[in-house]
Write a protein that binds this DNA or RNA. Structure first.
Lengths: 334, 334
DNA sequence: TCTACTCATTAGAGCGCTCCAACCCTGTAA
DNA sequence: TTACAGGGTTGGAGCGCTCTAATGAGTAGA
């Protein structure tokens, strides 16, 4: 399984190693005859350049390292696709890693990425301490996605969670809802801005905010609704859930309690996961431009890697509301 | 941003480069005094070994390349987690790549992985032509997950799709169902064995199989059920869907037609995705040991990489049925 | 005291590639 | 004819590391 080297190709084509190098890199100043001879020799031998040797010799890297905190989360998967689309066309290679939402494993994952001396790294929703981020940032251009950070050297790309909540509340208010509750995402990433956005959107309309502690899960959403029902009093006519999973859990708890969605209670999710699009669910939700986030992150990273920019840039993307079947005007007062 | 090299550490610690190398690799035959001196110098300089230079010099690689055909698919994400758990503890590095289910992009992705001269590569649900696989296999130990292949040099790990269908049919038959339809996954990966398993399970029980063309999507499942309804005649009392998405689509179409699940029709999914576990869905489904598949794939790959085995090994894992709320005995004949 | 042997340490070659400076052409101008 | 371009081509150094063989310092045995 010993693979051929440039030397082998050079020998077979009857040229020097340096010429093979030029051909492999597509240099324009190589005669046509030699070029084809080299190319033929290369395919005959099944040769392809050794990425590591190349990177070592040129002291440049085509590797962009990506640490994904949670691979199972479709949100990150789509951000990665966005990254990938840019990275690939620019001739870089993605090296993805995961830390499974565990700080020490994430730390190791980041170290492992850095050991490749990458052109840059992107951390998607990291849960590592900021010291790890700071450390990474002075070893390679560093980009944070779905995680804000005030370090002067790291770039960030985030969804504007406050604006997303504003969209949800605005939609519900237009439908005539005045009693709108928010199921809070707790310590989850982006939960804080979503909550802030909800509260200020309510205040702006002179409405009374109601934040119910919950979490980013199906069962968390169900539990929050049961808590709400147990309180007695009049139930809100609409709910702005922490995310889609949370919304789906809330819906099942509402239905179990004999309430219909959206006739009795409207529900808005957040994230527009594929779950929300299922006809069985058909959830009105806030869509984050995930692919776009990936693209922007990749572009910012490449700018840095090419030394075209040195100050940090913080991008905030605007979410959009996707209206489906879980929102409607509130029931007539009875 | 120039990072320190072994030379720098050696100079600072007052020893030779070779000694630093030994320390970094944890060699036992280094005196205690020098070892600590080297380690201190390394941390002071923020040194960490250059993975590529190391790999080049040692002609060995710690990279295990993984090409994931579809990152958004939670199935693969969990297989990757299984791989990762083994790979990491064995001191290897995962390099993940994606081809977005596009043959030519997957081909490029595989080439890119090979350019790192990895210790081995794993292709998860690849859609590349088998020539690409054959080519990869003679450049690095190659493992196929969720894709079978008769090449004498490649290992495979698969879920036993036939056994999964058998489990589903068996469960339904025990409940008393005799008219059980299968929504077929079409050209999707693993659709063929699932269909075969269904057909033979039906025959084994003297039941008449009914295969309805469909696909691995929500809308495909809904369409197949509408086709079924449009045929007239008696509807099957149970459905073995192609996968979970397909099952959920089927359920919504059934409900739209005024049929209740499971009172009128039982539905079994396949994959046990997180979707199936949602209380709102609560789908009876076939669970594949995804994490286990990843673990086994990693172990087999490392065996090969270490030269402990040279013949191909094909592993077939047994699925399990997860019974939830979408299956029940058929309605009494009326 | 000298040889034998062990063990920590080191110099130097080399992994596969890129880069630079030098080189060799052939063609054109003087 | 000689000089001079200027593009195609090449040897050699070097990227950061590992590995082998050799070095030197002890330590024990004769």
């Amino acid at each position: 399984m010993r693979r051929p080297t440039m030397e082998d190709v050079a020998a077979r084509a009857g040229v020097s190693r340096a010429l093979v190098s030029l051909v492999m890199r597509g240099s324009p100043r190589v005669g046509e005859a030699r070029r084809t001879a080299v190319l033929r020799a290369a395919t005959e031998l099944g040769y392809s350049p050794h990425a590591m040797a190349r990177s070592l010799a040129s002291a440049t890297s085509t590797v962009i390292g990506v640490m994904v905190s949670d691979l199972r989360n479709a949100f990150f998967a789509e951000v990665v696709e966005g990254l990938d689309s840019v990275i690939m066309t620019e001739g870089f290679d993605l090296v993805i890693n995961t830390g499974a939402r565990d700080p020490s494993r994430e730390h190791r994952a980041v170290q492992s990425l850095l050991s490749f001396r990458p052109a840059g790294i992107a951390l998607l929703g990291p849960v590592v301490p900021s010291s790890t981020i700071a450390d990474a940032a002075d070893k390679a251009p560093t980009m944070l996605v779905a995680h804000s950070c005030a370090l002067p050297t790291v770039d960030t790309v985030n969804d504007d969670g406050e604006a997303g909540s504003e969209l949800a509340v605005s939609h519900l208010a237009e439908q005539g809802h005045r009693s709108i509750a928010h199921l809070d995402g707790g310590g989850g990433s982006q939960a804080a801005p979503r909550r802030r956005g909800y509260v200020s959107a309510m205040h702006r309309r002179g409405l009374q905010p109601l934040v119910v502690p919950s979490e980013y899960t199906d069962s968390g959403g169900a539990r929050a609704v049961r808590d709400l029902l147990a309180r007695g009093g009049t139930l809100p006519t609409a709910i702005v859930a922490a995310n889609d999973f949370n919304a789906v859990g809330a819906i099942s708890a509402l239905e179990e309690a004999g309430l219909r969605v959206p006739q009795d209670v409207s529900v808005v999710g957040y994230d527009n996961t594929s779950l929300a699009a299922l006809r069985h669910v058909s959830l009105t939700t806030v869509d984050q431009p995930r692919h776009e986030m990936g693209r922007l992150a990749a572009e910012a990273l490449l700018e840095r890697a090419r030394g075209q920019r040195s100050e940090a840039v913080h991008q905030m993307l605007h979410p959009a509301l996707v209206i489906r079947a879980t929102t409607a005007p509130p029931p007539p007062r009875g």
